[in-house]
Design a protein around this nucleic acid. Structure first.
Lengths: 259, 259
DNA sequence: TCACTTTTTGAACATCGTTCAAAATACGCG
DNA sequence: CGCGTATTTTGAACGATGTTCAAAAAGTGA
């Protein structure tokens, strides 16, 4: 029956409209002043209609976060597909993450909030499942790079399961995103250019894992040169030269959206 | 004037009462069902009185988080004071963090929430300042260990400022706490014993930094043995043998408080 | 056109953070 | 002690917002 299909399509389109609008509202007015009524009004729908799509405000936020994460996954996959040594590909994953943080600064702020117990526990099972499955591809990329690295003899097999090795870079990135978004914290401790440091530490960690070819010079400038090369070869569309400079040497304060 | 002093003391005592009560309420009923009215009622005060101490609910939460962080700092300092090689002391810091996560599981959940933009931006300047200053000692410990390590020749001087080197372990720990508390995430990706992995990755990272003496065997069992030794020598009061086992080998699901 | 189903609406409701005028209490002084 | 003043506490009232649901509107098929 064609009617059913059309309805489903229209329903999905409306959900997209809601999410797009919510995103715009967050960008312009901040997360704090987002209300269900405002989202609905901005789309010319009644408040109640929102609840046909989302079981709660938190559910909407998780849906939005998951959708944004889609772009992140895409960038990730491009990094993983980069034709180079397994170590360089692993490094490229972190670079992708950093680039994404610049390109879509609101994502990590939202994600941080959404993964909070208070929000997470108010979301629907379906959305939670979708959120987890949405980032599944990232995991698969990591797993496959590690598998190949071990197979090629680039990475010593320590008896750790594949993803267990990926957890290090993962938590490094995650932790740094958190620090960057805790307003005033890094400047209080006088830590500058956080993302430059992150990438240096990724290199340190990969060295520590014995991931060949080992990198001798892990200076800021060396890492910057490596990132620049990656940007030219893989991420040319998402990152110009100036952006790169800012990325690695600036205080790294993510542009604040109004509260 | 003695009256002023006494008043100040009583005021501080009442604030402690409020915070203690809030903590108990969170432990028993969860963060979600904490309301200002409930906190006040549980202390036999009117709701308005709370606002003599805290400028908002978020302000109260930040105050509570800061106070809990005090215990964390104390454990940190004990780890740092441990009489051993600089590398072992650095490792001990992460162990302290893991032990604290077990001892006070609600802390990281709360901290994660409080550092969220939505909450953080609704707190008072004074509390934010206090929160930052409260964790200052941890930073000093890290700085001093790194300074000594470089001076002793245990750690190559890479031209990085002292704290820049500490950022790696810091973000590793922070990121892992975040993962652990994102309910369902680690089990979805089949990552077990997260804190065991964290400590292994700390060792990998320290090796990568060239922090001598380098550790050859970074297997789970080796790390576990090291942690056990530390627990006997430094943390005997906060960690028994069984707790240790759980700590490193269990799925690591932090006990959930009711929502 | 009509009977029936599905969807949308938005006013009503409930909750909770926050305020503030009035009541209660504490304080200092003759 | 008593009294006037300053300070603190109170808790009802207010406003904002997430959520619901009965009524209205729109859609559907014969």
């Amino acid at each position: 029956m064609g009617t059913q299909e059309r309805k489903a399509r229209e329903f999905a389109a409306r959900e997209d409209l809601f999410l797009d609008t919510a995103r715009q509202l967050i960008l312009s007015d901040g997360l704090l002043s987002l209300t269900m009524a405002r989202v609905a009004a901005a789309c010319d729908y009644a408040t109640g209609t929102l609840y046909q799509h989302f079981s709660s405000k938190e559910d909407l936020l998780l849906a939005l976060s998951t959708r944004m994460a889609g772009d992140r996954v895409a960038l990730f996959c491009r990094a993983a597909a980069f034709d180079g040594a397994t170590r360089d590909r692993m490094f490229a994953l972190s670079v992708a993450d950093v680039l994404f943080a610049k390109q879509c600064p609101e994502h990590f702020r939202l994600a941080q909030y959404v993964f909070t117990e208070a929000v997470w526990s108010a979301t629907s099972d379906a959305r939670r499942q979708a959120a987890l499955e949405g980032s599944q591809p990232m995991c698969e990329e990591v797993r496959s790079i590690i598998r190949q690295a071990v197979a090629d003899g680039d990475l010593p097999d320590r008896g750790l399961r594949n993803l267990d090795l990926g957890v290090g870079p993962w938590t490094l990135c995650l932790g740094m995103h958190t620090l960057v978004h805790a307003d005033g914290l890094l400047s209080f401790y006088d830590v500058n250019r956080p993302y430059g440091l992150l990438l240096q530490h990724i290199e340190f960690l990969l060295n520590g894992l014995g991931w060949k070819p080992l990198v001798d010079d892990i200076s800021a400038s060396h890492v910057a040169a490596k990132v620049e090369r990656l940007c030219r070869e893989v991420f040319s569309d998402v990152c110009d030269h100036q952006g790169l400079e800012d990325l690695l040497s600036d205080p790294g304060h993510i542009s604040q959206s109004p509260i």
